[in-house]
Simulated assay, not measured.
Amino acid sequence: MAKVSIILTAFNEEKYIGKAIESILAQTFEDLELIVVNDGSTDRTLDIINGFDDSRIKLISQENRGPGASRNRALKIAQGEYVMYLDGDDWYSPNAVEVAYHEAKGRDTDFTFYQMINYDDKTGKIYENDWFNLTIFDESFENTVFKASDYEGSIFDMSVGVCQKIYNTSFLRRIDAKFPEGIFFEDMPFFYYVLLKAERISIIKRHLYYRRKHDASITHVVDCKFLDTVPAGQELMRIFIENGWYDAYKFDLLAYKINGPRFALRDIEENCKIPLYELIKKDYLSIKQSKYYQDFLENLGPVKKKFFQDIISSKDYDDFITLNQA
């Protein structure tokens, strides 16, 4: 049985998948398995995957089901003591698995954060930012183990990306951790469920992961995929409510739920604005009929509260724009 299972999901990644796989097979830590999910690619992705001859590779090839379903399927067959995730357009530093495994194993963590570094595909520039550098964790969190309640800031300032952590496989299975299926932004509800279930967390202040920024990146182009900020936020609310975490975190939770679709509606491509508005309105009207409506009114700051109320009271998207600019 391998010590680490690496789950790599890919949809039409012919330009990048080779480098991603090579970065895994060339790791200084060799006791691993690589589970590659070809998620219905229509380009040469599958041919490139099949061009690698390494007994550590397990291939799942399926009709397109999205990243959440792909990761759930791979996790079911993972045999490693720990699990890491890699996107098909990114890659690891040469010793990433070795460093992550020894930290997680040595401190017996449920999961461990590590730093990511950004790569601009157009310019070739490598650059850092605070979000992926984990700067919200000061030096008191280094070389120790903690849990979410030990962090005095907002947990909603943490990086939610699934690929920025190594996870104890038994822990994920014990808590029945699953990604939402059929939507994008599946990392976010998964992360908060795992975070608040975890008793032992640590951080590694080293750049182990290279995150490629390019024109087709999911988070780079604000297109109709961002309609899924609404169901992702609904799933997040469900998780907090059903697990008894709502009251402890509601002030920041409600702001976080509002801000995702709010910023998406501001920035999304023109042809997606009305569909997104309609999804948000349906969600907010449902909230208005629920016992949580008053919490939104009492806990949201003035800008978010106005957005919330303007969506509810507007007749259509144009009317909302008029109200919200007032």
Results as ranks from 00 to 15, higher is better:
173 R>N: 14
218 I>P: 00
210 Y>C: 07
166 I>E: 01
239 I>P: 03
165 K>M: 13
221 V>H: 13
240 F>H: 05
163 C>T: 12
201 I>E: 01
237 M>Q: 11
217 S>W: 07
231 P>V: 08
197 K>D: 01
213 K>F: 10
204 I>W: 05
182 G>I: 10
212 R>Q: 09
237 M>D: 05
182 G>L: 08
196 L>T: 13
222 V>G: 05
193 Y>A: 00
206 R>S: 15
209 Y>E: 03
223 D>G: 12
176 D>C: 08
230 V>R: 04
168 N>T: 10
238 R>A: 10
196 L>R: 12
205 K>Y: 12
221 V>I: 12
169 T>F: 09
217 S>V: 07
209 Y>F: 14
188 M>I: 15
175 I>L: 03
227 L>I: 13
219 T>Y: 14
210 Y>V: 14
229 T>G: 09
164 Q>T: 13
191 F>I: 11
174 R>Y: 05
168 N>V: 10
195 L>E: 00
233 G>C: 14
223 D>W: 06
239 I>L: 11
223 D>V: 04
239 I>S: 03
185 F>E: 08
230 V>K: 07
175 I>D: 00
213 K>G: 03
187 D>W: 02
205 K>I: 09
213 K>M: 12
216 A>D: 14
212 R>T: 15
232 A>Y: 03
227 L>P: 03
171 F>Q: 00
237 M>T: 05
224 C>L: 06
189 P>D: 04
227 L>C: 07
170 S>F: 10
168 N>W: 01
191 F>K: 10
189 P>C: 05
228 D>Y: 02
224 C>D: 14
172 L>S: 01
187 D>A: 09
206 R>W: 00
206 R>G: 05
240 F>I: 01
229 T>R: 13
168 N>H: 06
231 P>A: 12
186 E>G: 06
230 V>F: 04
223 D>L: 05
189 P>L: 05
227 L>N: 13
200 R>A: 07
169 T>I: 07
209 Y>N: 02
235 E>Q: 08
226 F>T: 08
225 K>C: 10
209 Y>C: 04
218 I>L: 15
209 Y>S: 04
191 F>W: 07
227 L>F: 12
216 A>H: 09
184 F>G: 02
224 C>W: 13
216 A>V: 06
174 R>K: 15
179 F>H: 12
182 G>T: 09
236 L>K: 02
231 P>D: 13
183 I>L: 07
223 D>A: 04
164 Q>W: 03
185 F>W: 10
171 F>D: 01
183 I>T: 05
234 Q>L: 11
209 Y>K: 02
231 P>S: 11
230 V>E: 05
204 I>G: 04
207 H>A: 07
235 E>I: 12
